[in-house]
Design a binder for these strands. Sequence first.
DNA 1: AATAATTTAGTAATTATTACAAATGTGGTT
DNA 2: AACCACATTTGTAATAATTACTAAATTATT
Lengths: 140, 140
Amino acid sequence: MFEKYVRLLKESQIKITPQRLEILKYLDEHRTHPTVEKIYSELKENNPALSKTTVYNSVDILLNHGLIQSITISGSELRYDFKRGMHHHFLCKKCGEIIDINVECPKLGSMLECGHEVVEVHGYFKGICKKCINKKKEKN
Amino acid sequence: MFEKYVRLLKESQIKITPQRLEILKYLDEHRTHPTVEKIYSELKENNPALSKTTVYNSVDILLNHGLIQSITISGSELRYDFKRGMHHHFLCKKCGEIIDINVECPKLGSMLECGHEVVEVHGYFKGICKKCINKKKEKN
DNA sequence: AATAATTTAGTAATTATTACAAATGTGGTT
DNA sequence: AACCACATTTGTAATAATTACTAAATTATT
């Protein structure tokens, strides 16, 4: 059930707690780029004692050890995403959904040679998503 | 002095007010990606009556008309940037500075053909900037 | 099982942003 | 130039997201 996450935490030398396991598992199984609020309210259902502070603390430590990444696309709040291969994000301004975009930029290498030490790369696109475009068409 | 900004506001059919002119001018002349707080405290020096709400309102309307863009790279607060050719941003995790990165991704066109209607494109890089790397070297 | 250090929960404090209403300023008209 | 309808500015209050802090509980180790 949790072996995968126990292993990930051990590899990163992070102390194992049920809360961290649940949060990491939640992010792995829900690639919806949730906010702290969302993670908190979802996990609180099975663990009513859960504290929001714990969610903040946990995502912080998972983030610092590179097990998850933070997404700043929406401006008003941070969102989190289980770390896997590089991908970008599209924010629909109509429905608010954040959709994964899988592309690789061939120029990326040269971008990285700017003299700065680049650790993170984020591509954010914004506009109207496919679904919302189709909804609009149906109405007409 | 303000002709350029008067023209820009007129073209966008935004009502001209001294506050909007000052804010637009400030963003044009200070490409430092300032926060609302920064814009407010800087402009308050010459206009003590300035209200922070006005800065929020003004950047909102300038944003909605495409005269400026918002940057969500730092997560905790929105930053603003006078609109010009496309460029990306690098956030130094040490000194917090946000540096412009001028690159064009040749794959961008194909990225845009994902079925979604793409309106905005943002590239965010994070790491340690040139200056901070050199500072570290000097210490050793 | 005992221990030392870390983490959790819960509340309070802080920061960024939005909501609101009265006072003022804008652009167009006479 | 004065008038007017409407939009904007101020200033304060409210909300939302995050951080600070401390006692109680839990973790990994002895």
